[in-house]
Write a protein that binds this DNA or RNA. Structure first.
Lengths: 331, 331
DNA sequence: CTGAAAGCGCTAACAG
DNA sequence: CTGTTAGCGCTTTCAG
């Protein structure tokens, strides 16, 4: 039904391979015939079938992106950076939401592999076990992780300096005179989050740490638990901004004011953190750039078939001081 | 390099077509050979090449989603709904950001068409001209629009009842005693937005209407302009929530309190609208459901090759009353 | 029930 | 410069 190379060839009175050449590069084809072919192709509304082309060239010009949930503004931003970079290189991006579910993540990987994508970009569900690494490597597909480089595996990675970010948050809170500080974070074993926790703990060794879901709801719940069990706490470092908003919500529900009664620091610096009430003090990480950089690396990996050394890129972070933290000694 | 049907066939000592049958359906193949084939396939880590399969079956099991920007929480939510639905049907979703740019949108459509996606989901840049419609239809690909059904075209559509939503906002503001009311919206010609405007104007015929970008920044700018030129205004209806946040920001920068000095109503009911300060009164529309429904329709369209009648689904909306509007007579 | 053969639409040597 | 010939990996008649 769709018009093919053959149709164009017949109509132009040349061989189909000549049409192919005319369309791809100007390489080795008489200017006149080429012009004629192009004209016919145009007239017939010819659209190359990239799927067929991919079958022979072995490149699909499609990348996979697996995040836990695009609805988290952090991932939306990463996705946008990735999509822009992919687009700039003539690639498409297929979006997958893993919900941090191990099995679902694996199903996506298999599916992407079967579609022969040129590479996968993912924030892995959790630290990769030996078996997992083997499985992934077994697909023989370039993969770049949006997680920290745990040292153990041999994948390329790009992420922010989570450890430092945690440290900055911890130091800041201490500098503001806080003594009883808590850290509310996501599930154990989540690479980036645990790095933040480690950095934070390095600065605030005696902090209370509570694990839960790293969503708005999770932030609410954990804060509820915290306020009940540790009323002495005057400041909390939430593992990301949406959790921080959950904390603020929970505080408000209990009649606590932020920052007068409770100080809170977030992580990510999503757009909304600047317009929340109070504006959230948080650790900024370059989300868009992370997505874009990951794609660049992935594409580079896809170029050279020989497994080159993994590239690891770590972006700097920065504490953005706004109004959700109060100096403890002035209250 | 990858293991193919042929490899499995050789290893299992049968013809490649037998392997194909064994893997696809159990249809017409001896149970014993089938078992053996499956076993060999497993042992060799065989992964079907869906790209090759697609070439012969004519179905790619891939859908395209074109939105203006996933970073708008509204679209992130729609995308998630679409992805979940696609996933449930064994399809992948490729994500495209048009930035409301006509040319970019068309490039994406062409690219998706050349990849032979099974269908495209898009919130069109603007009302479709006759030529545009022709062009789109010319690709012979199922398309469902996330815009209103303008009546003119023959595409399937799914969207919220934008007109009613605008009306609800207008009526609410009037019921609260506001007389001088403004509407801040996006570029002219944007289907959904102009429906909201029409609905609103139906309820508040003498409203001031300002056009600009429908982003946070756009909201800021428009509000600035509004406050300067029409200081008499006591309430504004922003075309979406992120714009509403921009309005709130602009108001705050000028020392105006919301809702005491200025009331604001948004549209979308994105998650943050509930945690903003003050919590935003807004018109709720079912974002996730819209994305999911659109995929369902698209897939149905992709099934039957004969161009069946376009399906049009309109979701209900609801005004969510929170704290960003004050009764004008009590101030 | 299974093998042989054709072909999806395209690229890529290899001859002429 | 251009046509011929193989496939890419898979599904699908059509015989056997």
């Amino acid at each position: 039904m769709a018009v093919t190379l053959k149709d164009v060839a017949r109509e132009a009175g040349v061989d189909l391979s000549t049409v192919s050449r005319s369309l791809s590069g100007s390489y080795g084809v008489h200017e006149e015939t080429r012009k004629r072919v192009l004209e016919v192709a145009e007239r017939l509304h010819y659209r190359p079938n990239r799927i067929a082309r991919g079958l022979v060239t072995g490149r699909s010009h499609t990348l996979g992106l697996i995040v836990s949930d695009v609805r988290n503004p952090f991932f939306a931003e990463v996705a946008r950076g990735a999509e822009d970079a992919a687009c700039a290189h003539g690639c498409d991006l297929v979006l997958c939401n893993s919900d941090l579910d191990q099995a679902k993540q694996m199903r996506y990987i298999v599916s992407l592999a079967e579609k022969r994508v040129d590479g996968i970009l993912m924030n892995s569900v959790s630290a990769l076990g030996k078996a997992q690494q083997q499985a992934l490597a077994g697909f023989g597909m370039p993969i770049v992780l949006l997680n920290r480089a745990s040292g153990a595996h041999s994948f390329s990675t790009v992420c922010a300096d989570n450890y430092l970010g945690g440290q900055l948050a911890g130091r800041y809170l201490k500098a503001k005179g806080h003594i009883r500080i808590a850290h509310l974070t996501g599930p154990r074993g989540h690479g980036n989050l645990s790095d933040r926790a480690r950095g934070f703990l390095n600065a605030v060794p005696d902090a209370v740490v509570l694990h839960g879901r790293h969503t708005f709801q999770g932030g609410c719940e954990l804060a509820g638990k915290l306020l009940e069990r540790h009323p002495e706490v005057t400041a909390v470092f939430a593992a990301n901004d949406v959790m921080a908003f959950g904390v603020m919500r929970a505080a408000a529900e209990r009649g606590l004011r932020v920052p007068q009664d409770l100080s809170v620091v977030g992580f990510d610096n999503i757009e909304f953190s600047g317009i929340a009430h109070p504006p959230l003090t948080t650790v900024h990480q370059p989300k868009y750039e992370i997505g874009a950089a990951a794609v660049e690396i992935l594409l580079r990996l896809a170029e050279k078939q020989n497994g080159s050394a993994p590239e690891r890129r770590i972006f700097g972070v920065e504490l953005i001081e706004r109004d959700s933290v109060q100096d403890c000694r002035t209250r």
